[in-house]
Every structure is written in C-alpha cells, then in structure tokens.
Amino acid sequence: MNRVVHVVDDDTAVRRSLAMLLRSTGHQVETYGSAEALLQTAEAPGGLAQGCIVLDVRMPGMDGLLLMEVLSRRGIRLPVVVVTGHGDIPLAVRAMRAGALDFVEKPYAEERILEAVGSALASSRQVDRQRLLAAQAQAKVGALSPREREVLAALMEGKANKVIGFELGISPRTVEVHRANLMEKLGVRSLPEAVRIGLEGGIGGAG
C-alpha cells in the first residue's frame, strides 16, 4: 500500500519546498495550507490516504494542537510529526503529550525531516499490521461457540481444567474437549498463542 505524507503548513514557500524534498526521495505528498483544508479532505469520500502528517504546530485559525484533537475525536490516527519554530518548543512538547510521534524545529536539516517522516511512515505500517492482526483475531474468536469462549476466558485467567469445569458445571474432560476444539479453530498449538489471539480478539482476562 502506497502511503502519503500529508504536509500541513500555512507558509506557502515552506510547504512547497518540503513537498519537493519529499517527492525527490520517492514519497507521495499532499499539501494543505491550513488545518481546515486537511479536515475538508478527511471529511470527503475516501477520507485521508494512509500515511502520516507533517504538521506546523502554529497556524492562523485552527492550530496544530487543535487539529490533532479533532482528528483523534474522529478516529483518524495517522502518525504526526510536528514542525515548530524556535519559540514554540513548549507547544511542541504539548503536542508530543497529545500523541505526536516527533517534532522537528525550524529551520531543519533535510536529513532530520526525512528521518522523522521515515519513522512516522514505519509507525503507520506497524499500526496497519496491528489492525490486520486484530481483525483476524476477532474473526477467529467470533467462530468459537459461546462455551468455547467461556473456556478460553477462563484459561486466560490461569484457571485449571478442574476449576473451569466446576465453575461452568461441566466435567474436566468436557473442558479438555472444548479446549482442543477452540485451539483448532484458532489455528494454534499452544496456550500462549491462544491467549494472544484471545486478547487481540477482545476476550478479557486477568493475565
């Protein structure tokens, strides 16, 4: 999947030069002159392409911090690299606390901004992978019977077959059958693997 670097900066010259740099190194780039412009794209059919956001933290109208808050409320969680002027370090720190992945101070060296963008895109790929694994785990857990989910939840709490059988009103042998069936459906051979899928699939456990 091709990922896009979304550059948000009200300074036209800065926005264009950064876009040129990123494109010269093989990145796909979309540029926005304001936070509001990016939100318009986010609200349009198709929304924002997967990738990352390079965001000027101080802009007229909606600033970078407020944009991050709005995106978070809307469930748009692309990694963010904040770009800040010399006097805006405290603002950048607030942005980091709000979830920004990195911040780069102006004027920045090309190597520094490229490094930050590379890390953000790598983070984006990892998020996509985690979402895929979670979706796969949810599908596997969804294929379990209600009783098998109960047994898995109990196993995730570290309970022995005898205890599980007592609590569910079934024999330990029946617990073993359910355990074997659920592990087959989950496609795993060990209990730790089953526990991992259970957690990713939304089954709680006391650990």
Rank of each mutant, 00 (worst) to 15 (best):
L78S: 13
G169I: 07
D63S: 06
P146G: 06
S24D: 15
F103E: 02
K159L: 13
V8D: 05
Y32K: 11
M62V: 08
I76W: 02
G61K: 09
R125F: 00
G85K: 00
R131T: 03
I89W: 01
M96F: 07
G118K: 14
G198D: 09
G202W: 12
H86A: 11
M183F: 11
L22I: 06
L191T: 08
G158P: 09
D56C: 02
V81K: 00
E167T: 12
G201E: 05
G75A: 09
A139G: 14
V104H: 07
E148K: 02
G118V: 03
R147W: 01
M68A: 03
A19G: 14
I197L: 15
G26Y: 04
A137W: 11
S124D: 06
G205D: 04
R23D: 02
G142E: 08
N181M: 12
R129Y: 09
G204Q: 12
G205I: 02
M156H: 05
I89H: 07
R189E: 14
T12Q: 14
A154Q: 04
Y32D: 12
E115D: 11
F166N: 08
E105N: 01
L18C: 01
S145H: 07
A206E: 13
I89C: 08
G33T: 14
F103P: 01
L91M: 15
L132V: 06
I170C: 02
L38Q: 13
M62G: 04
L22M: 10
R15N: 12
D56L: 00
G99T: 03
A194Y: 03
I53C: 08
G165D: 00
D56T: 03
L186P: 05
A100Y: 00
P60L: 02
E200G: 01
F103W: 10
E110V: 05
G201S: 11
A194W: 03
A194P: 10
A98K: 08
L22R: 05
G142C: 08
L152A: 01
L38Y: 13
R3K: 13
A109C: 01
K162E: 13
G201W: 05
I170H: 05
L132N: 00
M1N: 04
M1H: 02
G169K: 03
L182Q: 11
A116G: 08
A19V: 00
M68G: 05
A116L: 07
R77V: 08
T25A: 07
V57C: 03
L18D: 01
L191P: 06
A92N: 07
E36K: 08
L114Y: 06
Q50G: 15
L18Q: 06
R173K: 13
R94N: 14
V175L: 00
S171D: 11
R179V: 06
F166K: 10
L48T: 12
M156W: 00
K185R: 15
S123G: 04
A116W: 04
E36M: 09
G205K: 07
G85W: 00
Y108D: 04
S123I: 01
I170P: 03
E176Q: 12
S171V: 07
R112K: 15
L186F: 12
L39M: 15
G204M: 08
Q126D: 09
E115G: 09
M96N: 04
L71W: 00
E193W: 05
T12H: 12
G46S: 05
M62W: 02
